[in-house]
């Protein structure tokens, strides 16, 4: 049985339907934005509470690394690209981390 829907209500339903479709199409970017923003706020929050300095620095840098990973994998589409690009990115980041570690080890032993 067809129940007639008032014009205003049907218009609202169409708009709602469009919004739902829009969110479904672009949800990947919406979710990554929410995740990245929340992680940023967690980092800022950490500086407001009393946590031992070295632990706080470690956690903040770990959060930054997770944010970078989210950005690379989803926003920069490494997940959907040729595997060789993901391997390249992995090697580059490993090299950078290695470079920082050996420099700091050398610096610490002077």
């Amino acid at each position: 049985m067809d129940i007639p829907v008032p014009f205003i209500l049907s218009n609202k339903l169409i708009i709602m339907d469009r919004i739902i479709k829009l969110l479904a199409d672009y949800k990947l970017y919406l979710f990554t934005f929410i995740a990245l923003s929340l992680l940023t706020l967690v980092s800022v929050g950490l500086t407001q509470i009393e946590v031992a300095s070295k632990i706080a620095i470690g956690i903040i840098l770990f959060i930054a690394a997770i944010q970078a990973l989210i950005l690379l994998v989803f926003n920069m589409h490494l997940k959907y690209q040729d595997k060789i690009l993901a391997i390249f990115a992995g090697v580059i980041f490993s090299l950078i981390i290695f470079l920082i570690i050996i420099t700091m080890l050398d610096f610490g032993n002077r």
């Binding site: 940023t40 706020l41 926003n75």
Partner: peptide, 28 residues
């Protein structure tokens, strides 16, 4: 100023989202 830095971070992340959406939109 941490507040300005945080606001700027959110603004930049938001711009990343709009950029990503434009990429999906052109494909559609």
């Amino acid at each position: 100023n941490v507040t300005i830095g945080t606001i700027n971070s959110i603004i930049l992340l938001l711009s990343g989202m709009t950029m990503g959406i434009s990429y999906v939109a052109i494909k559609k």
